[in-house]
Simulated assay, not measured.
Amino acid sequence: MEHLVNSKVKQIEISGIRKFFNMVADYKDVISLTIGQPDFATPQHVKEAGIRAIEENYTTYTHNAGIYELREAACQFMNDKYDLTYSPDHEVIVTVGASQAIDCTFRTLLEEGSEVILPSPVYPGYEPLIKLAGGIPIYVDTTKNQFKLTAELLKPYLTDKTRCIVLPYPSNPTGVTLDAHELKEIADLVRGRNLFILSDEIYSELVYGKKHTSIANFLREQTIVINGLSKSHSMTGWRVGLLFAPEVVSKHLLKVHQYNVSCATSVAQKAAIEALTVGKDDADVMKKFYEERLNYVYQRLINMGFDVVKPDGAFYLFPSIKKFKQTSFDFALSLVKNAGVALVPGSAFSEYGEGYVRLSYAVSMEQLIEAMDRIEKYIQQIS
């Protein structure tokens, strides 16, 4: 009966990140630096807000777009943090994580043959959703440009079929981000064209040494901003995403969202109100630890001889392993077997990720120290 399955579904594959994570799960004494899961607990006051919601029987459907108080809090958060102004009435939708917001966006914007430009290496969750919506992913190689999609790199890829450009900054897997000047140049390039920017800013609260800037500050009318609480408040399992867009498109996004999930979980929404108001700066504590870990791991990798771009956001490093003359998969698997450290093969992030591995430093410093010691010993053995 498999022949009855939608051909587009049959053609997509499980994420390469999860594939490798599952493959090495049974190895003993392995330090896993694979999954982008914050190692901090959800802040206690946020958990208590969720508990109160259950005890007060706040377990029913909410407005399709989300609890109004949460939408107000989300808009205020964006204004306070990033100088962005959105209406809680018509320009924000609470989604089931950022992933569902991305899915809704592609299904709303794309038609058969629509092109979506992706800076690569890139998070593998975009391509399947683009293809399921009938779109065509167009990859731009950023490996020779510090992993940044700039206006100069972007321009040759713009066609009459371009419907969307994905700006996933800070980036998963590279951790790099774009500054205000770089974003403004992209905005100036695409202003007035018949396309939208999907700006995935889920790591916006984890930017080091500078303030996060959104391209919506320069091109609000053509930008859909996606954010959420998974990374900023260590709420991955609560599944709270936030989708901001001009009313002209958000009213259509809401239709797709409504028929997809009806609404985000009521209990999680109540917790999210607490996170975005009382806990609006909760990420600052985590960010301090992440930055310390980044500096430590980056310097250890440099001392080992790795070629690696120092990121300024998220909690990933993306070192090159080209000098070892192995595929990224073979290198990563050998590292697990011989050193007891799991990294994600760069090939999981498109063909342009080949020759790299992704390292997540969202684990304790103790684990990172041991992992770096193991990697260093392994590198000495194979060099």
Results as ranks from 00 to 15, higher is better:
G346M: 05
V225K: 06
L333D: 13
E69V: 11
V207N: 10
L206A: 04
I12C: 01
F329V: 11
I67F: 09
F318A: 02
V249I: 15
P88R: 11
L154D: 03
L198K: 08
H252L: 07
D312K: 10
A180C: 06
D200A: 08
K8F: 12
T177K: 09
T143L: 04
K8Y: 13
N57V: 00
T223G: 00
H90P: 00
D179R: 12
S230F: 06
Y169A: 01
A332P: 02
L359E: 03
E205G: 12
V267E: 09
F218C: 00
G353R: 14
N22V: 05
V240A: 05
A41E: 15
N295C: 08
R239I: 00
V308H: 03
V94D: 02
T162R: 03
L154E: 01
A283V: 12
P128H: 10
G66Y: 13
V122E: 14
A180R: 14
G135W: 00
L110K: 05
Y290P: 00
G228H: 06
I31V: 08
A362P: 04
N295F: 07
H90F: 12
E115C: 01
P38Y: 12
L343G: 02
Q222T: 07
G279S: 10
V267R: 06
T265L: 13
T34R: 05
G97M: 05
A41K: 15
F106Q: 02
G192M: 06
E201C: 07
E13T: 15
Y169L: 04
A25N: 14
Y82K: 04
H257W: 15
G134R: 02
V309I: 15
A187D: 09
F306Y: 09
L343K: 03
A264G: 12
K337Q: 15
G353V: 08
P156C: 05
S262E: 14
H181C: 10
Y58S: 01
D80K: 15
G340D: 03
I51F: 02
G355I: 06
V278L: 14
G66P: 08
K337N: 12
L118G: 05
Q44I: 13
Y296D: 02
L335Y: 05
K47F: 05
L206W: 13
A264D: 04
Y123N: 04
T60H: 15
L153R: 09
N303Q: 13
T62R: 08
I215R: 06
H252G: 03
I51L: 08
V336Y: 12
E13A: 13
E182I: 12
T59L: 11
V30W: 13
V46A: 06
N217H: 07
Y378K: 03
H252V: 04
L33Q: 10
I138D: 00
I321D: 01
